[in-house]
Every structure is written in structure tokens, then in C-alpha cells.
Design a protein around this nucleic acid. Structure first.
Length: 644
DNA sequence: GCCGTTTTCGGCCCGACTGTTTTCAGTCG
């Protein structure tokens, strides 16, 4: 659900420039797109703001520099108009004409577009004609029959909106990757078992491994004579809260938890099952679209519904450049299709048995689904420059894990056994440092006890070495980064460790001050000679809380400089599906700066080690190859790196 | 609002489904 709170223009910092930061401006541009839609603006103008927001968010250079050097409009997607807005925000801290737009659109309208089947045009019409400016008011108007008489509306509209309001209440927004995959795999399995289904595959943002998943897309290939029966079978599946619509080729559903039923799901998300479900309220729902096509169209439909939308737009343009037209059913010469559309036009398609054939016809290498975000993959695929992405099996260990010494539930030996069972050559222990206490309870390891843990680790390592087992524990610490950027523990404690994972935990203080102060503090932390790995860099909890504001581009640039001087500074992808922090959008930048990434499960029990699977998905989405990831190194190499 | 460029304004990805209307606009993905 779109949260109405937060739909205000950010206040300028007290001193500057820059008065407003890049991420704040990107968020505003995104909101302006929505507000303009509600204002009845030209749809291409709306798209322009969305594109500009994206372009700005992925700008890797320092924004103030770009503004001062008047190079903003060189950024693709930012022109004179929006460029002027950005410059004003950065240099003056003001928002020009946007104040008026924000003041004119009632925040309740934003919430109203969250109702399924109700879009910006009709929301605006309801507001203009009846003065309806909230979901609550709409509900009352529908019950009293005020909506049906409006031109373009009817009795069914009223009923649909009333049902939509109830669904909006139950809808919990996007789902974390682990939860979304759980539902997606379950639905895929159920559909694959339906008689007549030849192929069934999960597509959409789940297949692209986004950190959160909005709705599920399943593509089904089957003989046309079976389509009706398959549609009926899908509609009869358990756990359907609502059928939003169904036709010859698609079924649009809202699922509830009972769809998961008995023994479905599988793979690495299994261990997350109980925990993931406990969090969702018992009547929470998730949307799903099922597309049913004949087998010949399957690869095209799969590609289409895998997206992203931006990737698809680029693919269509690439097809046009080749004199071809690409739609969800085929890839065919423009002149042969003539005026026909859809499946009819696709009768002239070039043959494709899987997605790689589609890319092949357009002169491109197969683009892995994770990369399909229009962040350069089209160009790379056309020039043979796609990365060879890391695989989960490339990992040889992990460096950030907890034991009973702090807030973990397993002992050193138990964690080591679990790591060996995964085929790993090492496990880095990084229990919390002294300063950490939660609710007055001491969580962190007192500095005097660090040496005690070190002694146990040494004796375990000696035992493995003696019996010829290629496994070792690496004695590190998850050391708190204090508000001034210094590290917890006396220096001599930190130097006694193999590695220091520096993490921020006092989120309150960090979220209460601005991006520039936080960035300076993080840079001070990474500059400490004992600092090794930046742990969960923003502190975000997906679907829970925002991270603290920070310019990670600047921090990663500094870490890259230090590495160029011969130091070892790495950044963590915290692989917990609750975090997935470092964000995939920053992985390539880290690589470009010469900062290795470390995929860490932040495990607090033996099962938690398996979370590295999720972290690997993030690394893949961030274009990383095995050599870019620190913990693809062997145990012996790690010992060398840490000077052990 | 941005882009490209035949440097001045037209084009901007494409299709299914729904409800209302009677030929189509709105919504969704």
C-alpha cells in the first residue's frame, strides 16, 4: 500500500549547498510522477518524471559537482525542466512550482489509487465531481449509490470499489524475496501439475530476484484446445481470495496463505517458511497473474512477463531497429504483420524455442533474468560484454556470523559443523562488540572475553589441522561503529582479530542526522587501519524500516582509494532476506571502485548460514562475478589476506 | 517533460480485460 505519510517535500539542510541530497530529490521526482497523474497531466510528462527519478538515483557522480559544472542535462532522462528543478533544490533548497502541486492534491487520493481497478483518471473524476478525497469517503459514497450515476461508472463499479477497499485493507504491499518465492514456487508447482500443462514457469520480479516482489507472474504453455480446461482448473485451486478477472489467455488472482497448503515449496526458501509466514497477518494476500499461451509463444510470453518493463521497452526498440516487431507472442518482420496485432501478427514469427533465440535474432547474447533492469545489459549483450555471474556454489565460506557468545543460538563447534556440511573451508565468527546492549541487556562480548573466544578458536583450528581437515574458524568481530565514526573496543583488541566487520547499530542517532554527517562518520570508520568489512551498510530492514541516510557512493569511493594504497576494505552484502544490504544497485559501483564484496549470512543459528543463497542472488543482480566476491577465495587464500 | 536531429516539433512499447457504451476509455501489467 502506498503510505500517505511522507508525501511532503523535504526540508532543506540548515547549511549548504547542497541543501537537498540526491536520494531525497529522486524520491520527490518519483512522487511528482504520481501527483501529476492524479492531476490529469499528459502521460508522457508523468513518464518523464519517473525516468528522471531513476536516472538521478543511478547517478554515480557527486551530485553537487555535476550541478556546479552544469552537466546535469548531459544525464539521459534529465532535460532543461527537471534539471532546473534539481539545481534549485541542491543550490537553494527550494522546490519551485512543486509546492503548489503538493498542496493541490489531497493525500487521500494517493491512497485511493491503491484500490484494485481504480486508477488516477477515475480518482480525479470522483474528486472533481463528488469531492471524494479519501478511501473512507469513497466507501460511503458507494454504499449510498452516489457513484453509479456518474458517466462512465455503473452499479458494477460501485461493487468493485467496495470489494477493492476490503482487499486494500488485507494487502500488505510488496513481499520480501523469500516470501514471494515461497508463494511463487508453490503456485508454479500447483499449475505445473494440471493436466494439459506442458510448461509452467515463474516470471516477473520474482524471476528477476528483486529484493521485494510486488505480484507473481506465471507463464503457462499448453495446446490451445486445453486452455479452457486449464483456466477452470486454476480457478478451482485452493487459496484464491478473489478472481480479479479471467479471459482466454489470462487469469488474474488474489491469493491467500491457504494456497500454500501442505508440502509445497522447496529449495533454499524452505527453512524460512515458518518464520516468513508468522509475520504476515493471517488474512494477508498476494496478487498473481497467470498467462496461458500456446507452446510456440511460450518463450516470448515468458520474456515479456519477466520484464522489467524498462528492459522490454529497450528490446522492442532493438527489434524495431532490425525491422522487426516484438510482442508477447512473437518476433516478426514489420511488413509481414501489416495491420494485424497480437497473436494474429505473431503467426509470422521467427522461430524461437527459448529466450536465448529471441536475443539471438536481435544480435544479442542471452541476458540472465537478474540483469533485465535496463542498466546497461542491452548494450553489453550486443557487444559480448555480459558478466559471467557468480553462482551460490562459488562461495567457500563467510565472514560475519554469531555464536552464543553474543546473540547467536549455536556454539562455535555447532556453527563450524554446519559450515563444513555446506562444503565450506572457513567460517568467520563476528560476534557483537562490547557496546551493544538491547533493552539494557548486554549482548556484545566484553573486551576481556575476546581473548577467551580466540583461545577456543585456536584449539579447534589446531584439531582440524592435525586431522588434515581443510577447515578453520576466523576470529573476527562485528564491531560497532559509534556515532563519531570511531570503532568499539580498544585498538589492541581489534588488532588481535583476523578481521573487523564494522556495523552501525545505534540506528536512532544515525537516522536523526543528515546524510552528509553520516557519510563523514562512515568514511572515518573505514579509514581505521583495523577496519576490514562494512557490515549491512545502511541498516535497512526490508518492509520494516528505512536505512539511515548516507552517500554510499562517497564511502565506496574512499574504500577504493584505500584499497589502491594496499589495504583490504570490503563491503558486505548482508544476505539475510530481511536486509539484502548492500543494495544490488550499488554492487557494480563497488566493483568499479575496486572494493570487493563479501556475501555474509549474518547467521545467528546454523540454518541462517543458508541465507547466503539470497545474498548471491543480490550479487548476481549487481553484475558480480566470482572474483569480485571476497568469500569465493579458498581458506588458505583468506589466511594469507588476513596475515594469519 | 525528454529526446533526437531532416535543429523544431512529433513521437514517446504494446496488448488484454472490464465495464460501460454502442465504439471506447480506463486500468493493469
Amino acid at each position: 500500500m502506498v503510505k500517505v505519510s511522507g508525501w511532503t517535500l523535504p526540508k532543506a539542510r540548515s547549511r549548504g549547498p547542497q541543501f537537498i541530497t540526491k536520494s531525497q530529490i529522486a524520491a520527490v521526482l518519483e512522487q511528482v510522477g504520481v501527483l501529476l497523474e492524479l492531476d490529469g497531466a499528459n502521460r508522457f510528462r508523468v513518464i518523464a518524471y519517473q525516468n528522471a527519478s531513476r536516472a538521478l538515483a543511478s547517478l554515480e557522480e557527486d551530485l553537487l559537482t555535476v550541478v556546479l559544472e552544469e552537466r546535469l542535462t548531459e544525464v539521459k532522462g534529465i532535460g532543461k525542466g527537471i534539471g532546473g528543478l534539481i539545481s534549485e533544490a541542491v543550490l537553494e533548497g527550494t522546490w519551485g512550482g512543486l509546492e503548489d502541486l503538493y498542496g493541490r492534491i489531497p493525500p487521500g487520493l494517493i491512497e485511493m489509487v491503491g484500490i484494485p481497478g481504480l486508477g488516477p483518471k477515475r480518482v480525479k473524476l470522483l474528486y472533481d465531481e463528488l469531492g471524494i478525497d479519501s478511501v473512507k469517503m469513497l466507501g460511503i459514497a458507494c454504499q449510498q449509490g452516489h457513484v453509479a450515476p456518474l458517466s462512465g461508472f455503473g452499479k458494477k463499479s460501485e461493487q468493485k470499489y467496495l470489494e477493492g477497499i476490503e482487499l486494500l485493507r488485507r494487502y500488505q504491499g510488496r513481499s520480501r524475496m523469500d516470501v514471494g518465492l515461497l508463494y511463487g514456487q508453490a503456485l508454479e508447482e500447483r499449475i505445473a501439475q494440471i493436466h494439459g500443462v506442458s510448461r509452467a514457469q515463474l516470471a516477473g520480479s520474482a524471476r528477476r530476484r528483486r529484493e521485494t516482489i510486488g505480484d507473481l507472474d506465471i507463464v503457462v504453455g499448453a495446446d490451445p484446445s486445453d486452455h479452457d480446461a486449464i483456466t477452470d482448473a486454476i480457478l478451482a485451486l485452493p487459496g484464491i481470495a478473489e478472481v480479479k478477472g479471467h479471459g482466454e489467455s489470462k487469469v488474474s488472482l488474489i491469493l491467500e496463505a491457504s494456497m500454500l497448503g501442505g508440502s509445497v515449496g522447496g529449495g533454499s526458501v524452505d527453512s524460512q517458511l515458518s518464520e516468513a509466514l508468522v509475520e504476515r497477518s493471517s488474512d494477508a494476500t498476494i496478487d498473481a497473474q497467470v498467462r496461458i499461451v500456446e507452446l510456440a509463444a511460450f518463450p516470448f510470453t515468458l520474456a515479456y512477463f519477466t520484464g522489467s518493463k524498462e528492459h522490454n521497452i529497450r528490446m522492442r526498440r532493438a527489434a524495431i531497429d532490425c525491422g522487426l516487431r516484438l510482442n508477447e507472442f512473437g518476433l516478426f518482420p514489420e511488413e509481414e504483420a501489416g495491420d494485424t496485432i497480437g497473436m494474429e501478427a505473431a503467426r509470422h514469427t521467427l522461430p524461437c524455442t527459448d529466450e536465448s533465440d529471441i536475443y539471438g535474432h536481435l544480435g544479442m547474447d542471452f541476458v540472465p533474468p537478474e540483469l533485465r533492469e535496463d542498466t546497461g545489459e542491452i548494450e553489453a549483450a550486443a557487444s559480448g560484454g555480459l558478466p559471467r555471474l557468480i553462482e551460490p556454489g562459488d562461495l567457500k565460506g563467510a565472514l560475519h556470523n554469531h555464536t552464543t557468545a553474543s546473540d547467536g543460538t549455536a556454539t562455535l563447534a555447532e556453527m563450524a559443523d554446519a559450515a563444513m556440511a555446506l562444503g565450506w573451508e572457513y567460517l568467520g565468527i563476528a560476534d557483537h562488540s562490547e557496546v551493544l546492549n538491547i533493552g539494557g541487556r548486554q549482548i556484545g562480548v566484553p573486551s576481556a572475553e575476546v581473548a577467551v573466544q580466540g583461545k577456543v578458536i585456536r584449539s579447534l583450528n589446531e584439531a582440524w589441522s592435525d586431522e588434515g581437515t581443510d577447515f578453520r574458524l576466523l576470529h573476527g568481530s562485528e564491531c560497532d561503529i559509534l556515532v563519531d565514526g570511531s570503532l568499539d573496543y580498544p585498538e589492541e583488541v581489534r588488532t588481535s582479530l583476523s578481521h573487523v566487520v564494522g556495523s552501525v547499530h545505534a540506528l536512532g542517532s544515525w537516522r536523526g542526522r543528515d546524510e552528509i554527517a553520516n557519510t563523514e562518520a562512515l568514511i572515518a570508520a573505514v579509514e581505521d587501519p583495523t577496519f576490514t568489512i562494512l557490515g549491512h551498510p545502511t541498516g535497512r530492514i526490508l518492509q520494516g524500516r528505512e536505512g539511515f541516510p548516507v552517500d554510499l557512493h562517497a564511502v565506496l569511493r574512499r574504500m577504493g582509494e584505500l584499497n589502491a594504497e594496499g589495504e583490504l576494505k570490503a563491503v558486505e552484502i548482508n544476505a539475510s532476506p530481511y536486509r539484502l544490504d548492500l543494495d544490488w544497485r550499488l554492487c557494480r559501483f563497488a566493483k568499479q571502485q575496486g572494493v570487493p564484496v563479501c556475501i555474509n549470512p549474518d547467521a545467528h543459528d546454523v540454518d541462517g548460514l543458508q541465507d547466503v543463497w539470497f545474498g548471491t542472488q543480490v550479487a548476481r543482480k549487481g553484475w558480480l562475478e566470482a572474483p569480485d566476491v571476497l568469500n569465493t577465495r579458498s581458506g588458505a587464500e583468506m589466511e594469507d589476506l588476513f596475515g594469519l
